[in-house]
Design a protein around this nucleic acid. Sequence first.
DNA 1: GCATGTGAAGTGGTTCACAGCA
DNA 2: TGCTGTGAACCACTTCACATGC
Lengths: 211, 211
Amino acid sequence: MQLDRDVPLSTMERLPSYLRVIDSLLAHGMRAATSDVLAGRAGVTSVQFRKDMSLVGAVSGVRGSGYDLGALRGELRTAMGSSERIGFVIIGFGNLGRALASSPAFSRGGLDLLGMFDVAESAVGQEVAGVKVYHDEMLEAFVRDNNVSIAVIATPAEAAQLAADQAILGGAREILNFSPAALQVPETVEVRTIDLGAELQMLALHARSAR
Amino acid sequence: MQLDRDVPLSTMERLPSYLRVIDSLLAHGMRAATSDVLAGRAGVTSVQFRKDMSLVGAVSGVRGSGYDLGALRGELRTAMGSSERIGFVIIGFGNLGRALASSPAFSRGGLDLLGMFDVAESAVGQEVAGVKVYHDEMLEAFVRDNNVSIAVIATPAEAAQLAADQAILGGAREILNFSPAALQVPETVEVRTIDLGAELQMLALHARSAR
DNA sequence: GCATGTGAAGTGGTTCACAGCA
DNA sequence: TGCTGTGAACCACTTCACATGC
């Protein structure tokens, strides 16, 4: 298996969901599956799936019969580089921050939640699944001292930019932003923004046009 | 202003964020702005912004000076069809469900949260911002009786498919899915899945490759 | 002169159609 | 024969380059 550099971004984005499907099938005692089955469960077409495997350099497909799930899982993991562990923090201990902290999805795939941050005194000192809540003032130092790579921002819009600045100052290089603010960051920092309101708006759009 | 059918989907997806930027500028007392300013705050290039306005059929830009914010807001609203109000429900009253319910973004743009649903007896009967939590059993009937268009699924993965089925049975035609499950739905139903774990994985990917 | 507006070129990703192999 | 694997065609969106108009 050869790890081609220059796999399309969109392909990489689908790998986690493929991995989840494979895990689920393995858990049901299956050892192999066709691209049709795998793709169906992941919500893509079989061609798309095969193309992705091809681009990623996976070779555990067997013509005429399908893919060996165990081998495929290994290949996808390698492709995703999931060996190294990555530390992250969550800023904002409101409902969303708590939801994220307790989400099982956040504790998989080599990711470690190292700390949470909030401005409210009532939040500071609390603990979720063994992870403590610190005061926002500590953010920069914490990020630096613990070699945190990713900052998840779950604060109100007004506080988002400041949180981002502190995290970046401490050395964070990736930001997952749940506030609707468009963050201003250096080019070297990767930002993904998930605007929950905008997502719902998109569906509303669809709902209206469907009449 | 002519509402061209066949505006690119990606353009439509950016409209809500443009609208937010315009609102914020208006709130600061500004009456006009250039594409450069508007685009910068929305996190896109100025060309992108102008192209979008062009595609949407907006005509409130004035060569040499910029856009009239009041007029532009009206045009974008029309383009988004935001006159009609759309009802939605949230299924799952865990941290995520609560976070969504109290999110300001969810109560804007002609969207009405009509009800929330959960299986836990302890949740049923509670109230958030005047919206009640009902038992999951009521879902189908509620959706039908209240003409709900959109179901937001914030349940664990195991419960997601059932929730979707009930909502669709009741007449919902759009689903915003926060569970990692790939839902099986009829073709007529639009599903948007936001897998929070997958988003973080994507950043982890970036973090690893940056070494 | 400065900022909008837009056909044309470019880019990235998906789908097609079919070759290759158990 | 059945399913994988992949170059080529296709499509959607973005960026460029420049015409347009206040």
